[in-house]
């Protein structure tokens, strides 16, 4: 009986070990295959040049720049919205109907499939508001997509500021808005920035929301206005894989793009995770 339960424990723990190995192997093999093939595409011109010879040669400069613009735009749009929402939820929240409504909306917005955001952006920003397929439309669409993440990271950061710090400010005769601006937000800033960095990683890799709202599959030049359509790294990978005319030559370029995107997302996320863990330990 005893030996039996000992054996089942050994077997069980072995299975759990296999599970975590599968997860690690998946991550490892993705990084390995993309890095080992992608590195072959890397050269200085690959990062700076425009695509040439029907995307079989040249570089992906416009796609890199396009992705950066889209990420920047989406963060500029959703960071103020997200931080103010988090402030409202933490600092003003009477437990009432409005609060529940906002919380419910955030939770559900976080679960909306990314392609549905694309549909929304197409119908509202591209058509209804007449922004056309542009950096503006794409940034707004991506901005809504990353909003729930920014809100919850900001919320966590603001709620972690001790109540006693707020009281100290009030007791010195500060108004609520002074307390928020001069005490609460500075103290929560590192956490808010961490959330922002995570959101950058998310926005950089999303494809479906920008497919109908921002991207073009080929561009000879760098964008000059927010009303321009742009190339973007994730969409460029998709285009090379599905609509290419010279699959073999384009595969290498696609690997290169995937590697750039992977480096970008993993680096940005690692930094954010590292900073977040450091901050959590500070409060405990």
């Amino acid at each position: 009986m005893k030996a039996n339960s000992e054996n089942s424990q050994k077997l069980g723990f072995l299975l759990l070990f296999v599970c975590i190995i599968i997860a690690l192997l998946a991550l490892g093999s993705i990084i390995y295959f993309i890095a080992s093939n992608g590195i072959k595409a890397f050269s200085w011109t690959f990062f700076t040049d425009i695509p040439r010879k029907s995307m079989t040669a040249g570089g992906v400069g416009p796609a890199i720049v396009g992705t950066l613009y889209l990420v920047l735009g989406s963060v500029l749009f959703s960071l103020p919205l997200g931080v103010i929402t988090a402030i409202y939820l933490c600092e003003y929240s009477p437990k009432n109907f409005t609060l529940n409504l906002i919380r419910m909306s955030i939770n559900n917005l976080a679960g909306v499939p990314s392609v549905v955001f694309g549909l929304f952006g197409l119908a509202v920003f591209v058509k209804l508001f007449g922004f056309h397929v542009s950096i503006l439309s794409g940034s707004l669409t991506l901005g809504i997509l990353i909003l729930p993440g920014i809100i919850s990271a900001s919320y966590e950061a603001i709620i972690a500021v001790p109540q006693s710090t707020r009281e100290a400010s009030y007791a010195l005769g500060a108004t609520q808005i002074q307390t928020i601006k001069k005490v609460v937000l500075p103290a929560a800033l590192p956490g808010i920035l961490t959330g922002m960095i995570l959101a950058v990683g998310r926005a950089a890799g999303e494809t479906a929301p920008i497919m109908f709202t921002a991207v073009t599959f080929y561009s000879r030049s760098y964008p000059s206005s927010v009303m321009n359509e742009v190339m973007a790294l994730p969409y460029h990978i998709y285009v090379l894989m599905t609509e290419g005319t010279h699959p073999e030559e384009q595969k290498l370029i696609a690997y290169g793009c995937a590697f750039i995107l992977l480096i970008l997302v993993l680096a940005v996320s690692s930094i954010a995770i590292y900073l977040r863990e450091k901050q959590r330990r500070k409060y405990v």
Binding site: L24, I30, F33, T207, P234, M241, K251, A258, I273, E277
Partner: peptide
């Protein structure tokens, strides 16, 4: 734990286009 939890989170941060690309080619 300090290594595994962030690693799992990183796996979750990989964009779906990369998974698709990896799935299609490999």
């Amino acid at each position: 734990k300090m290594i595994l939890k962030p690693v799992v989170e990183l796996l979750g941060a990989i964009p779906s286009i990369i998974f698709g690309f990896f799935g299609m080619l490999i």
